[in-house]
């Protein structure tokens, strides 16, 4: 799909959409407030969306008991522990990747 008109349309639409979300309140400030419902829902979106993105990439699209032996699962568990203890993106990525590489080298 890359290199096509369709691809650039998509990127342009994403750029425009994202910019509008960022610019909206700079533009309308004083005329509108963020509605209460939106304020309530918003914090839940990244927590839910990011978790939904992680799982299939760690466990694959049809997980079974055998999946638990996949090096990616072990590497992810280590990375989650690092993330939880340090709250550091760099250390989390490093912890997960080093575990994955070590397991690949050993197995």
């Amino acid at each position: 799909m890359t290199g096509t008109t369709q691809f650039w349309l998509l990127i342009a639409a994403l750029g425009a959409g994202t910019f509008l979300l960022r610019y909206l309140f700079f533009f309308v400030f004083g005329r509108y407030e963020v509605p209460g419902v939106v304020k309530t829902i918003l914090p839940f979106i990244p927590a839910s969306a990011l978790s939904a993105l992680v799982m299939p990439k760690v466990f694959g699209s049809c997980p079974s008991m055998a999946t638990l032996l996949d090096p990616r699962v072990a590497a992810w568990v280590i990375a989650m522990i690092v993330a939880w203890r340090t709250r550091n993106i760099f250390l989390t990525i490093a912890g997960g990747m080093i575990t994955l590489w070590s397991l690949h080298a050993l197995l």
Binding site: P43, F44, P46, A47, S48, A49, L50, S51, A52, L53, V54, K57, V58, R72, A75, W76, A79, M80, A83, W84, R87, N88, I89, T92, I93, G96, M97, L100
Partner: peptide, 27 residues
């Protein structure tokens, strides 16, 4: 594999309250 790891690093600090943890785990 660095992509899901990045998302995990972003989501952990977002799970600060019980209701956010429920949302993340359910999802």
């Amino acid at each position: 594999f660095a992509v899901p790891l990045t998302f995990s690093a972003l989501v952990v600090p977002l799970m600060g309250t019980p209701e956010l943890r429920v949302a993340a785990i359910t999802s």
